[in-house]
Design a protein around this nucleic acid. Structure first.
Length: 621
DNA sequence: TCTGGCCCTG
DNA sequence: CAGGGCCAGA
């Protein structure tokens, strides 16, 4: 009769007890907590654990009355901290899932279950059901309860309190079997002795270790499935109790299918990338550009100077751009720098930290692919483990990501850069910093796929955003701009940093950058001017600034550290003029005046030249 | 008052 | 390179 209680009890507890509904709002993988662990274990398949449970259960059946008294008392904790938990635990644990109470006789054949015990158990089970269903008792069917039941409840409460007083051992590892066994031992030791408890304890420990392993496996598996098919997982959850071992087989099959899909995806992607690389290489070779991979992987600074930004710009064709757009930036304006332009700053970067968007660790192409494989194209990059969960959200127009967190966590980004780099920066910085043709080709391929995939294009669309913070790339760009303008106006800055969302703070920071640049510049000028005087140079005309000059090297090292930018000739002229100014002023002992430099500044600020248009593109660097 | 620039300091 | 103080000009 009541022996086949598992399903019924579970339904009762979940239907009548509001607290049991709470786990439903949790993620499925978290729903399988330690309290419904027995259910998960049974349904999902540890055969060994099931066998162990049978053994334990068979032995436990020897003293059913005390056991169920414990169970019921455990359930009677409406005023205690673990009421619903304990009751649920009891519900699942007490009856055999396979109804093998009837086989409860132990292998030794000792102590069959008496009718008396069965009757008493059935009564107590009824109590348990009612109590578990309504922790407050008053709300549900109080009137229907018999006096006998009420008396039993009172007894159970008393017994529970007594047992609880006795029980001082930590329970945190005994929520399922152990908790019950632990409570039971107090009342059953009279009959069965310590040996049995020890056996039970050993078995319990074995069972727990196996359950832990199983739980880990389940959680991993569930996490995978929750990512891919939440509905499927929910269905599995609902059917878990009935399906039992079948699911073990299902899981194996699904896992295999999963692996197959993964492999297929990988193969398909690498094939597409290979084809793309071939296509672009063909195209590039048809343009006559020298484009060997080795050249780009290991290009030296000298070579980069020869193939510098502007001197080589005539060799760049707009059509090259169409083949190698970065993943997230496809600008309507044609970038003068072809993505295949050999502007490689350093060997192929590999990511060094678990933080994929670290500026010191540009987004690896495989990371992009890995992400797409792992989380799907619609996941957005917020799905990366390092990202705060709030990044998951996205909108059709833009992906509004709280990038401050990312920047703050960047190892390289110093405190002053704790602003709000936005997705377009992501595209610009990470992909551009890759500076590798095949990466961009791949990105181009992804882009073309994105055009066919409405979900994927969500990620592409954030190129329309502007960054709310300045990045190392912006700093580098500003330094290069300094070769043209020492005193850029706010408007010039806004013009040449179109991907930056300007506000007062950003403007001030950019202005501050140039102020710092000037400071270094003037310090060098004064230093070399004084050195010239010390060296005995008497004629200012003997002082020149060329690319071989120490002064130029110092400046170039500061503003163009990677030496991948061809400094315009005009800068050499301005530097020479500045040096002359300082030389003359110091020679004339004007430096005794505290504000003697102001006159020089006034001269130099008029020597600014126009910054080339190429700097206007946000993806310039 | 705001902005921009320089100077000093860390 | 940034922060803060100070100053000058609009």
């Amino acid at each position: 009769m009541n022996l086949s209680l598992p399903d019924q009890n579970m339904h009762n507890s979940s239907n009548t007890c509001p607290e049991d509904d709470k786990p439903d709002i949790m993620l499925p993988c978290f729903r399988r907590n330690m309290y419904d662990e027995p259910l998960a274990s049974y349904s999902n398949g540890s055969i060994i654990s099931q066998l162990l449970r049978k053994t334990i259960h068979n032995r436990r059946a020897l003293d059913e009355s005390s056991f169920y008294l414990s169970s019921s008392t455990a359930a009677d904790s409406g005023q205690e901290d673990q009421s619903s938990v304990s009751s649920k635990d009891s519900m699942v644990e007490a009856p055999s899932p396979n109804g093998h109470i009837s086989t409860a006789a132990s292998p030794e054949g000792e102590h069959p279950i008496t009718d008396h015990l069965q009757a008493k158990r059935a009564r107590v089970e009824n109590i348990i059901r009612v109590m578990a269903g309504s922790p407050n008792h008053k709300q549900h069917g109080d009137s229907e309860r018999s006096d006998t039941d009420a008396r039993d409840i009172r007894e159970a409460r008393e017994a529970y309190r007594e047992n609880k007083r006795k029980q001082r051992l930590p329970q945190h590892q005994d929520h399922s079997v152990g908790g019950l066994v632990g409570r039971r031992s107090g009342s059953s030791s009279r009959d069965n002795g310590n040996t049995k408890d020890e056996e039970c304890h050993k078995l319990k420990e074995q069972l727990h270790s196996m359950q832990r392993l199983l739980r880990q496996l389940q959680q991993k598996f569930l996490q995978v499935y929750n990512q891919e098919d939440p509905e499927h997982d929910d269905r599995d959850e609902r059917d878990a109790a009935a399906e039992g071992q079948t699911k073990v087989v299902d899981c194996g099959v699904q896992q295999k299918e999963n692996q197959n899909i993964q492999e297929t995806l990988k193969q398909e992607l690498s094939r597409a990338v290979n084809e793309c690389v071939d296509r672009v290489f063909k195209k590039v070779s048809s343009t006559g550009l020298d484009f060997s991979p080795q050249l780009h992987m290991c290009s030296s600074p000298e070579m980069q100077i020869n193939m510098g930004y502007y001197e080589s710009s005539d060799a760049q064709r707009p059509q090259d751009q169409t083949e190698a757009l970065s993943l997230v930036v496809r600008k309507p304006t044609v970038t003068p720098l072809s993505s295949v332009t050999p502007t490689v700053k350093r060997p192929y970067p590999v990511h060094q930290t678990p933080f994929p968007f670290n500026y010191s660790a540009p987004l690896h192409d495989s990371q992009i692919l890995e992400h797409l494989l792992k989380y799907g194209p619609h996941s957005s990059f917020g799905g990366l483990p390092c990202m705060p969960p709030s990044m998951e959200r996205s909108s059709p127009d833009s992906v509004d990501l709280p990038w401050e967190t990312i920047t703050m966590r960047s190892k390289v980004t110093s405190s002053h850069l704790n602003h709000h780099p936005c997705p377009s920066t992501l595209g610009t910085v990470t992909v551009d910093n890759l500076c590798l043709p095949h990466v961009k080709i791949e990105c181009g391929e992804l882009q073309s796929r994105a055009e066919r995939n409405p979900y994927m294009s969500l990620n592409i669309s954030f190129e329309l955003n502007k960054t709310e913070g300045l990045t190392p790339s912006h700093l580098k760009k500003a330094k290069l701009m300094f070769f043209y303008t020492r005193y850029p106006s706010s408007n010039v800055l806004k013009t040449f940093f179109p991907d930056v969302k300007f506000n007062r703070c950003i403007t001030s920071q950019l202005i501050k950058w140039f102020s710092n640049f000037r400071e270094f510049y003037y310090i060098q000028m004064e230093k070399f001017a004084r050195q010239a005087i010390v060296d005995g140079i008497s004629d200012v005309k003997d002082i020149t600034v060329s690319r071989d000059s120490e002064l130029f090297r110092a400046l170039n090292m500061h503003y163009n550290k990677a030496n991948d930018f061809h400094v315009p000739e005009r800068f050499l002229e301005v530097a020479e003029i500045t040096l002359h100014e300082f030389y003359n002023a110091v020679s004339a002992a004007k430096d005794s005046d505290p504000s003697w430099k102001k006159a020089i500044y006034k001269v130099i600020c008029k020597l600014d030249s126009d910054v080339p248009e190429e700097f206007k593109t946000s993806s310039y660097l």
